[in-house]
Simulated assay, not measured.
Amino acid sequence: MIYEICVDSVAGVRAAKEAGAHRAELCANLLEGGTTPSLGLIRAARRVTGIGIHVIIRPRGGDFLFDDDEYAIMQTDIAAARQEGADGVVIGLLTAEGDVDAERTRALIALARPLSVTFHRAFDMARDPFAALETLISLGVDRILTSGQEASVLEGLPLISELIKRAGERIIIMPGGGITPRNAGRIVQAAHPKETHFAALTAEPGGMRFRRDHVFMGGELRPPEFDRLVTSGQIIRTVMKNTTG
Rank of each mutant, 00 (worst) to 15 (best):
I2D: 07
E4G: 11
C6E: 07
C6M: 15
V7Q: 12
S9K: 11
G12V: 08
A16F: 08
A16P: 05
K17C: 12
A21N: 14
H22W: 11
A24N: 13
L26V: 03
A28N: 14
A28M: 11
A28D: 15
N29S: 15
N29L: 14
L30Q: 10
E32Y: 12
G33C: 14
G33I: 04
T35W: 01
P37I: 01
P37T: 09
T49Y: 00
T49R: 15
I51T: 09
G52D: 15
I53C: 03
H54M: 11
H54L: 12
I56T: 11
R58L: 09
R58Q: 04
P59V: 14
G61I: 14
Y71D: 08
I73D: 14
I73F: 15
M74T: 13
T76L: 09
D77I: 05
A81I: 14
R82L: 13
G85V: 12
G88N: 09
V89R: 05
G92S: 05
L93C: 09
L93K: 03
L94H: 00
A96V: 10
E97T: 14
D99M: 12
D101H: 12
E103Y: 02
T105R: 00
R106D: 07
R106Q: 04
R106M: 04
L108Y: 00
L108W: 04
I109K: 06
L115F: 05
H120C: 02
A122M: 01
M125G: 00
A126D: 03
R127I: 03
R127N: 02
A132L: 13
L133S: 02
E134K: 01
E134Y: 00
T135C: 08
L136C: 10
S138Y: 04
G140P: 03
V141C: 12
D142R: 10
R143Q: 06
T146K: 02
S152F: 01
S152A: 13
L154G: 02
L154K: 06
E155S: 11
G156Y: 07
L157E: 09
P158R: 01
L159K: 10
L159P: 06
L159R: 04
L159Y: 04
S161P: 00
E162W: 00
L163K: 05
A167M: 06
G168P: 10
I172H: 03
I173E: 06
P175T: 03
G178N: 02
G178A: 06
G178S: 09
T180I: 09
P181Q: 00
A184W: 06
G185Q: 11
R186T: 12
V188P: 04
Q189G: 15
A191H: 02
A191N: 04
K194E: 13
H197G: 10
F198T: 10
A200V: 08
L201W: 09
A203S: 15
E204Y: 03
M208P: 00
F210E: 06
H214W: 13
R222V: 06
P223W: 07
P224W: 01
P224N: 15
E225P: 06
D227C: 08
D227F: 11
D227T: 08
R228A: 15
L229E: 09
V230Q: 10
V230L: 10
S232G: 13
G233K: 05
Q234L: 14
I235N: 07
I236P: 12
K241T: 08
T243F: 00
